[in-house]
């Protein structure tokens, strides 16, 4: 048995070396053959457009006539002469900065609760997940606007507790909170991910902590959070990117106007209006690249800091 194996092994190893590069070549050919659709998509519909957008950002382009190079004029206008843009950037950043943490904290809190109960978690999980599937739809935007109008369900409920502020839809100071609530309402998706992450944490860690005298809060701080840190990081980054992309909801709720007072004129809506309604596609491209830069900076910061607070299971052992 062994003799035969050794003989085979020798034959294989003798012939293996010159075939290594040929194998690799074959694999590479096969790989790219399978990858052709994705490659076309990546270069043609993602990377290519990104570069085109970068070019357009320095031009004045209305789709009818060829683009005219204007250098940094678009960016100068954005920062010095465009109050609407500044308002748009402000409300979008407010939405991202406040909405994302609240949404993720809600997701984590509910995941922790679901992780504790024995029965019924499946039902609750489904119930909480449903909004994630429909939250960004036109239907829900219509519903949300109706719910937050004067004498709507929210107004009625708050009046019950003596808070009589009327409808949120037209109020300058309540428009962004209303959108944050819509975002938070869709906490189900990150919650499901957190739940899956929680279930992966080995019980022994909790038991060990308990034996060391750690209470519930300490266990959370020293076991749960570190073990979940990878998932938290991933969710955080994904949610931030998605938060910047909100469009349909603000479009429908504000009837395409971004009012009241531009508070619902989130950056995607503003970009759409400038590019497609006003026909200023160069200007809109400049806005787009500003968003990319901001997201890239945030991502870079997160990645950099992740070294300090993100642990991957298996690394500490």
């Amino acid at each position: 048995m062994t003799e035969r194996a050794v003989r085979l092994g020798r034959r294989v190893s003798r012939s293996a070396r010159p075939h290594m590069s040929a194998l690799r070549k074959r694999e590479t050919k096969a790989g790219y053959a399978f990858l052709v659709p994705w490659l076309i998509g990546f270069f043609g519909l993602t990377l290519g457009p990104m570069l085109m957008s970068l070019y357009l950002a320095f031009t004045r382009y209305d789709l009818f006539s060829p683009p005219q190079w204007v250098g940094f004029a678009n960016f100068v206008r954005l920062f010095t002469a465009d109050k609407v843009f500044l308002r748009s950037a402000s409300v979008t950043l407010q939405y991202v900065a406040f909405g994302t943490p609240i949404k993720l904290m809600a997701a984590l809190a509910v995941a922790l609760m679901l992780n504790r109960i024995r029965r019924g978690s499946g039902f609750f999980r489904s119930a909480f997940y449903a909004p994630s599937l429909i939250g960004a739809s036109v239907s829900i935007a219509i519903v949300w606007r109706a719910m937050f109008s004067t004498n709507g369900p929210v107004d009625t409920a708050l009046s019950f507790f003596g808070i009589n502020i009327g409808g949120w839809v037209g109020k300058v100071n309540l428009a962004v909170p209303m959108m944050i609530l819509l975002g938070v309402w869709q906490f189900g998706a990150p919650m499901v991910i957190f739940l899956a992450g929680l279930k992966q944490i080995p019980q022994e860690l909790y038991e060990a902590a308990e034996m060391d005298g750690a209470g519930v809060v300490a266990q959370f701080r020293h076991v749960t959070v570190p073990m979940l840190s990878g998932v938290i990081f991933f969710n955080l980054l994904l949610e931030i990117v998605h938060a910047f992309q909100v469009f349909g909801s603000v479009f429908i709720i504000s009837n395409g106007t971004g009012s009241p007072g531009g508070r619902l004129n989130f950056i995607t809506l503003y970009l759409y209006k400038r590019g497609f309604a006003d026909g200023q596609m160069g200007y809109a491209s400049a806005i787009a690249w500003l968003v990319v830069v901001v997201v890239a900076v945030i991502a870079a910061v997160l990645f950099k800091s992740s070294g300090r607070w993100v642990h991957y299971y298996g690394e500490d052992r």
Binding site: S149, T150, G166, G167, V169, G170, K171, V172, N255, T257, S259, P260
Partner: peptide
């Protein structure tokens, strides 16, 4: 009031 008018849109 402007906010009531906003709500009533369209």
């Amino acid at each position: 009031p402007a906010d009531r008018a906003e709500e009533a849109l369209p």
